[in-house]
């Protein structure tokens, strides 16, 4: 039997910690270019004078936050971390989970970010003081790298999340009704203008993650599948016809984008999930 020598690349746990610490801060201080461009575009197209003024404040807010290293929003979020771990990457000098948690702790402390995590969620609710633990989603992929995406998620928008298990017969119309109604009922609470992540298919837990991952796509970049892209377009138009507007004051900009992702599912199922993202859409990534 021939000996197979795996080419394994070593990645230091400390480098993971440092990268996570940097990403938490950067994501909270610097609004992504695509979000800023979408807000500026909406500022031009918005019909409501109050809505326009709010959009102006949001563009100005991004400028102040970056110039002064101030969080864009005081809700610096739960630290949601997506890890893509190459199957030929080998973490040395520590445990992966510990390294990520340490990075969140350092980032939120050094960056003067608000720590919003509480322990036992239904009784004690004691602040953990360093925004740990993060919510980590790890995926094993081909390669010898580690890709880290940090998505600080505010509670105002997260609290509006929805999941439904539709009957397969309800189909496309059922999805549209569910999403549009959810946005209408959420109203001003999730801080519109929104980015709506929609997951379709898989299972109940799989579809929620799909909806969250849909938020990572650059704003307005349509799904490569034409049928899904058409669904996104129709949803965006229906949502913007609701009239909710920036921060709910009324207007033509309720969402900046709808990002939908679909996966195969069971013959008896049609799971649909919505993850709301407020206008303060923060995510930064690094590759080690």
């Amino acid at each position: 039997m021939g000996l197979i020598v795996a080419k394994v690349r070593e990645i230091k746990a400390k480098d993971i910690t440092d990268a996570v610490a940097q990403l938490c801060q950067k994501a909270n201080f610097e609004l992504d270019e695509d979000v800023l461009a979408a807000l500026k575009h909406a500022q031009q197209s918005e019909k409501s004078p109050l809505g326009k003024e709010i959009l102006h404040q949001l563009v100005e807010n991004a400028r102040v936050a970056e110039a002064k290293n101030l969080p864009l929003c005081q809700d610096c979020g739960s630290a949601v971390i997506f890890l893509e771990v190459g199957q030929d990457a080998h973490v040395v000098g520590g445990d992966l989970d510990v390294a990520v948690g340490e990075g969140v702790s350092q980032g939120y402390t050094q960056g003067y970010l608000r720590k919003s995590m509480v322990s036992q969620p239904f009784s004690e609710r004691k602040n953990t003081k360093d925004n740990t633990p993060p919510i980590v989603h790890t995926e094993i992929v081909p390669g010898d790298h580690i890709r880290i995406i940090c998505l600080p998620k505010g509670a105002g928008s997260e609290n509006m999340s929805r999941l439904v298990m539709l009957r397969p017969g309800e189909g496309r119309e059922g999805i549209i009704d569910f999403v549009v109604r959810a946005v209408d009922e959420a109203g001003a609470s999730p801080c519109p203008p929104l980015i709506i992540g929609v997951g379709i298919g898989a299972t109940s837990e799989g579809v929620m993650l799909l909806a969250k991952k849909a938020l990572l796509r650059p704003i307005g970049q349509p799904n490569p599948d034409q049928e899904i892209a058409a669904l996104e377009k129709e949803l965006l138009s229906r949502i913007n016809d609701l009239g909710i507007g920036p921060l709910g004051v009324g207007g033509t900009t309720t969402a900046l984008a709808v990002h939908a992702e679909a996966r195969p599912t069971h013959i008896a199922s049609l799971p649909v999930a919505i993850n709301f993202q407020c206008h303060c859409s923060r995510h930064k990534e690094a590759r080690l």
């Binding site: 807010n61 936050a65 101030l70």
Partner: peptide, 8 residues
């Protein structure tokens, strides 16, 4: 006040 404009 404008939600998400905490820096401003």
């Amino acid at each position: 006040a404008t939600g998400g404009a905490g820096a401003l």
